[in-house]
Simulated scan of single mutants.
Amino acid sequence: MEVDVVVVGGGAMGSAAAWQLARRGRSVVLLEQFEQGHHIGASHGATRNFNMAYAEGDYLDLVTEAKDLWDELEGATGMQLLDLVGLVNHGNVRRLRDVRSSHAERGIESHFLPATEAAERWRGMNFRGDVLVVPGSGRVRAADALLALRHAAEAHGARFEYSTPARDIRVEGDRAVVVIDSGEITARRVVVTAGAWTSKLLGSTVPLPRLVVTQEQPAHFTPLDDSLTWPSFNHNPDPDDPRDAYWYGPVYGMLTPGEGIKAGWHGVGPVTDPDGRSFTPEPVQLEALVRYVREWLPGVDAESAAPMSCTYTSTANEDFVLDRFGPVVVGAGFSGHGFKFTPAVGRVLADLADGGGAPARFTARR
């Protein structure tokens, strides 16, 4: 079989790349090693934060583009994908002032509230210092987004093949060959968006930076009062306050309708092999998360923790890898903060497949 592009990995990023490529008229086959809707990688679950609280211009440009593309995808599929309930950011106010300054330069709406006013508005949460509110943020309906991306890609002729692992990728001149159980597929480009399996699949084929796979262990907590309003949130420890010394790292969270308030440490789970995960929470980290919830989220039952499991595949600086090596395009290292950018990342990967470039921050060889 011969096609223009094979996409290896059918999570959010691969599905977005397939959509962007197919709408350009490319013949696209997407290969996903597991069944549709599996819970083994990084794209499953009902919700993710849609967070515009970045200070870096290239990330702000990418997330602004992503917002427009999420809206376009909603229009194309008739599915609601964003709930712009607002997002609050607190802790480490010095960093938040940088974010606010970058927002002001780009005309992104955000503002500070004093802790007392924020606590009055969001009674399920506690605050210690000034809070940066971003009204145009909120959450992405992640599971629905995967379906929407697939439907949009298939509407332009892309073919999604589930339970079809790529066994090998060979570079032959200016083309690539993907080996699957039923044979081989030759393509002008191969886009690899294999998440935690990226390094295993590519080996030494391309010079990637070190990608560390961790098993992350957020949990859902039951709200005590269904009348409370919940924004999405990010909370960074204050480096100057000893009361935060027990924290493992930053905390993120959001309301997941029907499941409760999701909260988790960011990027501190145990290093794991994606083919040998335990799927069970690390007990000391979970105990610390429950303590955090008890202290900072009075609107939930801290003892109701229902842990879940996902993977992060992280670079040392948490910047993504979006690059091309001959006929092989790689999207990797999304470091637990990539989902909000999904449709814009798909556009960048499609550009790379078509011979274009990516922002310098995301090239593996910078």
Rank of each mutant, 00 (worst) to 15 (best):
Y246G: 03
Y246I: 04
W247I: 00
Y248M: 04
Y248N: 05
Y248A: 06
Y248E: 02
Y248S: 03
G249S: 13
G249C: 13
G249T: 13
G249Y: 02
P250K: 08
P250W: 09
V251H: 08
V251C: 11
V251D: 01
G253K: 03
G253V: 08
G253H: 07
G253F: 06
M254W: 06
M254F: 12
M254P: 00
M254I: 02
M254H: 10
M254Y: 13
M254A: 13
L255N: 09
T256W: 01
T256A: 15
T256Y: 06
T256S: 14
P257I: 11
P257T: 10
P257C: 12
P257E: 12
P257G: 12
G258T: 14
G258M: 12
G258I: 10
E259C: 14
E259Y: 15
E259F: 15
E259D: 13
E259N: 14
E259K: 15
G260L: 03
G260Q: 06
G260K: 04
I261V: 15
I261L: 12
K262H: 08
K262P: 01
K262D: 01
K262A: 05
K262R: 10
A263S: 05
A263R: 02
A263V: 04
A263M: 01
A263I: 01
A263D: 01
G264D: 09
G264C: 10
G264W: 03
G264E: 07
W265C: 01
W265I: 04
W265F: 15
W265H: 07
H266G: 04
H266C: 04
H266F: 06
H266A: 04
H266T: 04
G267E: 08
G267K: 04
V268P: 00
V268H: 00
V268W: 00
V268M: 00
G269V: 01
G269N: 03
G269S: 07
P270M: 09
P270F: 09
P270K: 13
V271W: 03
V271D: 11
V271M: 09
V271F: 01
V271G: 00
T272C: 12
T272H: 06
T272K: 00
T272R: 04
D273G: 07
P274W: 04
P274C: 03
D275W: 09
G276F: 08
G276L: 12
G276R: 15
G276N: 15
G276M: 10
R277H: 03
R277D: 05
R277F: 02
R277C: 10
R277Y: 01
R277M: 11
S278T: 15
S278R: 10
S278Y: 03
S278Q: 07
S278I: 09
F279G: 10
F279Y: 15
T280Q: 12
T280A: 08
T280N: 00
T280Y: 00
T280R: 09
P281G: 05
P281L: 08
P281D: 04
P281Q: 10
P281Y: 05
P281C: 05
E282S: 13
E282I: 07
E282H: 15
E282T: 12
E282W: 07
E282C: 11
P283D: 03
P283N: 00
P283C: 01
V284E: 14
V284G: 10
V284H: 11
Q285T: 10
Q285S: 13
Q285E: 13
Q285Y: 03
L286R: 11
